[in-house]
Amino acid sequence: MGHKLLALLATTVIASGGAQAQEIIFAHGENPGNPRYVAAEEWAELFTACTGGEQTVNVAPSATMGDDVEMLTSVAAGVIQVTANSQGAMSQIVPEIGLIGLPFLFEEQTTAWEVLDGEIGDMLDEHAQQAGLKILGFWDNGIRHVSHVSKAVPSPSDISGMKIRTPPDQMTIDIFQALGASPAPLAFSELPTALQSGVFDGQENPLINIYTSKIHEITPFITLTGHKYESTPVVAGLAWWSGLDEETQNCALEATAEAGKLQREMSLEANDSLRPTMEAEGVTFTAADHQAYVEATASVYEKYSAEYPELVEALQSAVGQ
């Protein structure tokens, strides 16, 4: 809890005659330096200030409240109130969320933000509410690339047979199965140890996640595949959300949007600026054969178009495909 927040809380308690503020938990899985970590701290200050100190926030970072799936379960159960989570984990509960990660759907992060801030985001929120979750907004988790312990993978044939860690996300698993790799899900917090022990040949993530978790030190060969985009859905428990008055609900939405601007800007800047930093630390970057990868993953669209025709069509229409 930051000094500003403590000062605000103390002032509020005094002003209200010592009344006890209500504390909520905002949990996430990232470490200091990651945009999600910074934005969560910002969210806490904004939400507390907006509620006049009637609500305070205990930010629980670095998977201290469990991995992403466990945090979502805790949110639905009311153990914690809000989580900045992962698209992959949430797709286990709300499968439609996984469609954001259709291969090569978004070539630019900014395009994804425009789509998710509009009608598509509202549609996904409706599905989430049916599962007892409320989407407050979508932060960014970047365009994803493949990193390998010993080689570049510029074409699908290079990735064939690769033991690759994925999030617990069926879409990502389907993409790498289509590419001929051997994908397996694992919690992000367990990934460095699994890579060091040789369980995997590599993994896939946006550059900022690779860097702040120091995975580039274990897998210094990064191929700029850009195979999918992922969001960071900011999710509240629907029961908690429904119990708030409209003013407090608006505080949560506004805090998510404002902290999200910071988070998105940091993520975009990192995507543009991290490459020379990582090269100086020993990373070798390689371009991918974009068209070959697109063609190799076409079957993924066939699968999901059959399962979710309206939403896939809406997403493709939104990006002009």
Rank of each mutant, 00 (worst) to 15 (best):
L179M: 06
G88L: 09
A152C: 09
L105E: 03
S213L: 11
F104K: 05
G101E: 11
N209E: 12
Q196G: 13
S157L: 10
Y211A: 12
G118E: 00
V199E: 13
I100L: 13
F188Q: 10
I159G: 01
N85W: 03
D201K: 02
E108M: 13
P167I: 02
F188W: 14
T212P: 01
D158F: 08
Q109S: 14
G101V: 03
S160K: 15
Q87S: 13
T110G: 03
Y211F: 14
H216C: 11
Q87N: 15
L191W: 04
G98R: 06
I97K: 00
S150F: 03
A84N: 13
K214I: 03
E114G: 09
S197L: 11
V146S: 01
V146R: 01
I135C: 07
Q92V: 12
I215Y: 01
L124F: 01
D174Q: 05
G132D: 07
P154D: 06
E126L: 12
V115E: 00
H148E: 03
E190G: 08
S86D: 13
S189P: 05
S182D: 12
G142Y: 04
L179S: 06
S155V: 11
D122P: 00
D169W: 12
Q177M: 11
G180P: 01
S189M: 14
Q177T: 13
Q129E: 15
S150P: 03
S155R: 08
K134P: 06
K163P: 02
S150N: 14
S91Y: 09
M123P: 01
M90G: 07
P154A: 09
L191E: 09
N85V: 06
E119Y: 04
P156E: 00
L124V: 05
M123N: 08
L99W: 03
E217V: 07
Q87Y: 09
L186D: 07
P206M: 11
I93H: 07
V149R: 15
